[in-house]
Simulated scan of single mutants.
Amino acid sequence: MKFRPIQAKDDAQLAGIIRACLESFSLDLPGTVYYDPELDRLSDFYQASPDRRAYYVLVDDRDQVLGGVGFAECGLFEQCSELQKLYLIPQVQGGGLGCSLMELVIAKAREAGYQSLYLETHSNLSTAIILYQKYGFKEIPQPDQLIHTTMNRFFVKDLSTE
């Protein structure tokens, strides 16, 4: 397995993975990434501003997408990016790949010059919340401007330390 930047050929597979994961947690609701207009064309979104955002897919030996993670500029805080769309297919969950994705996105956001990494999640995603806390994300009150209005848990990580 390896990580590589998202390509247009990954769009349909990745959108399917994200939607299936959200459905499995009853989060196929308006106000989640499930209905994001760019979900079916993620490569276009991330390649449109490569110095400020990126998405990395995890692929197997046959170049099949197993999951991915990204970041993009976020105006909620100064020099802040948002951790976006960290998802894995069920068959590879629990094997440490979520940690690998987290380490990759933290390093890449830091390389892009961001000072903090923000994320929105939902209490239904308890395993993901444990992962975020393991990597030093601190829960914060709900920001005034939400990106995904159904989300009910909010975290930020300071990238300027470590």
Rank of each mutant, 00 (worst) to 15 (best):
L42R: 02
L42N: 10
L42T: 00
S43V: 00
D44L: 13
D44S: 09
Y46G: 04
Q47C: 11
A48Y: 11
A48Q: 15
S49V: 01
P50H: 09
P50I: 02
D51S: 09
R52P: 00
R53S: 12
R53D: 04
A54I: 01
A54G: 11
Y55G: 03
Y55D: 03
Y55E: 12
L58W: 12
L58S: 01
V59W: 09
V59E: 14
V59M: 11
V59H: 07
D61Q: 08
R62F: 11
R62G: 03
D63E: 15
D63W: 05
D63I: 00
V65N: 03
L66I: 01
G68I: 01
G68M: 04
V69W: 06
G70T: 01
G70L: 05
G70N: 06
G70Q: 04
F71M: 08
F71E: 13
A72E: 11
A72P: 00
A72D: 10
E73Y: 15
E73S: 13
C74Q: 12
C74T: 02
G75D: 15
L76W: 08
F77Q: 12
F77E: 14
F77V: 00
E78A: 15
E78D: 14
E78R: 13
E78G: 06
C80E: 06
C80M: 11
C80H: 07
S81H: 09
L83P: 00
Q84Y: 05
Q84W: 09
L86N: 04
L88Q: 08
L88K: 06
I89W: 12
P90R: 13
P90T: 08
P90H: 13
Q91N: 12
Q91H: 13
Q91P: 04
Q91R: 13
Q91W: 09
V92Q: 11
Q93M: 14
G94L: 15
G94K: 11
G96E: 15
G96Y: 14
L97Q: 10
L97G: 01
L97D: 07
L97I: 01
C99Q: 15
S100H: 13
S100A: 12
L101Y: 10
E103H: 07
E103Y: 03
E103W: 05
L104S: 07
V105N: 07
I106N: 05
A107W: 12
A107H: 13
A107V: 02
K108N: 07
K108V: 01
A109H: 07
R110L: 07
R110N: 09
E111K: 08
E111M: 06
E111R: 09
E111W: 11
A112P: 09
A112T: 01
A112R: 10
A112M: 14
G113V: 03
G113H: 10
G113T: 04
Y114L: 04
Y114R: 02
Y114D: 01
Y114V: 02
Q115I: 00
S116T: 03
Y118Q: 04
Y118D: 02
Y118F: 15
L119Q: 09
E120T: 03
E120V: 00
T121R: 05
T121V: 06
T121Y: 07
H122I: 02
H122T: 03
H122A: 07
H122N: 08
H122R: 05
S123F: 09
S123A: 14
S123L: 13
N124I: 01
N124S: 15
L125N: 06
L125Q: 05
S126A: 11
S126K: 14
S126E: 10
T127A: 15
T127V: 08
A128N: 11
A128R: 09
I129P: 03
I129A: 04
I130V: 12
I130K: 15
